[in-house]
Computed example of a mutant assay.
Amino acid sequence: MATSSADDATLEAFGVDLDITVAGAFFAGAANTAALILGLWLLKKGVRRGYRRRREVQELRHQADATPTPAAEPAGRDIPADDPVSDQADAPPDPATQRPANP
């Protein structure tokens, strides 16, 4: 409970003077305390969430490591290795055989 007081106080910070009542200083301090408590609570919640998320990712990685994976099959067409067309498909185009763009 705040008692009424007509006394003014002067707050001075960073070269700025601020005239404020004693009750105003009290309520400003109470608001700052509430903001500090709220900030600490949010920080606590964030740390707990991060810990749970890291633990879940670690468990999922362990599960993925324990799960056997099927043998990887090559993607693409089944082309024999000695096929001359398949060798040309991967080679860059020969500029001597291409037509010029502007005749």
Rank of each mutant, 00 (worst) to 15 (best):
D78H: 07
D78N: 01
A6V: 11
L38R: 13
I37R: 03
D83M: 02
P95H: 01
G50V: 08
A91Y: 00
K45D: 15
A66P: 01
P92N: 00
R48M: 14
I79F: 06
A35N: 05
A13P: 01
A35I: 13
A30E: 04
A91N: 06
M1D: 07
Q58M: 11
P92L: 03
Q63E: 06
A13D: 04
P68D: 03
A23L: 14
F26D: 12
E56T: 02
G24T: 14
D65Y: 14
D94Y: 04
P103V: 12
P80V: 06
T10S: 04
R54A: 06
A91C: 02
V22N: 06
V16A: 15
V57P: 02
S86V: 14
P95D: 00
A81D: 03
E59R: 07
G24W: 00
A64N: 01
V47C: 10
L36F: 10
P74I: 01
A35S: 08
D83K: 06
A35F: 05
V85S: 06
P70R: 05
L40T: 14
A81K: 05
Q63I: 03
P95F: 00
K45S: 12
F14R: 10
D19M: 15
A66S: 10
G50S: 08
L42K: 10
A71K: 00
E59V: 04
T21Q: 07
A91P: 03
A35H: 06
T3D: 07
P68L: 01
P70N: 00
A30G: 03
K44R: 09
A101W: 12
V85N: 08
A31R: 01
A35D: 05
D78P: 04
A13R: 13
N102G: 02
A66L: 09
W41R: 08
T67Q: 10
G46N: 15
Q88N: 13
V85Y: 05
V47R: 11
R49N: 09
D17G: 07
P103T: 07
I37W: 04
D17F: 11
T67I: 04
F14C: 15
I20S: 08
T21F: 05
D17A: 14
P93C: 02
K45Y: 05
R61M: 11
R55S: 02
L38K: 12
Q58P: 00
A2D: 07
P74M: 10
A71F: 08
D17W: 06
G39H: 14
D78W: 06
R99A: 10
S86Q: 09
L36H: 08
E59P: 00
Q63W: 03
R53D: 08
A72F: 08
P70A: 08
P100S: 04
T69L: 13
A64K: 02
R54P: 00
D82H: 15
P70Q: 01
K45G: 11
I37Y: 01
S86E: 02
P70Y: 02
F14N: 15
I79Q: 03
P74W: 01
F26L: 15
P93K: 01
V85I: 15
A101M: 05
A101G: 07
A64I: 05
D90Y: 04
P68T: 13
P100W: 02
A72L: 11
R99G: 02
R54H: 09
A101Q: 03
D82C: 13
T10I: 15
Q98L: 12
V16Q: 11
S4W: 00
G15S: 08
E56Y: 05
T69M: 12
D65R: 12
S5W: 04
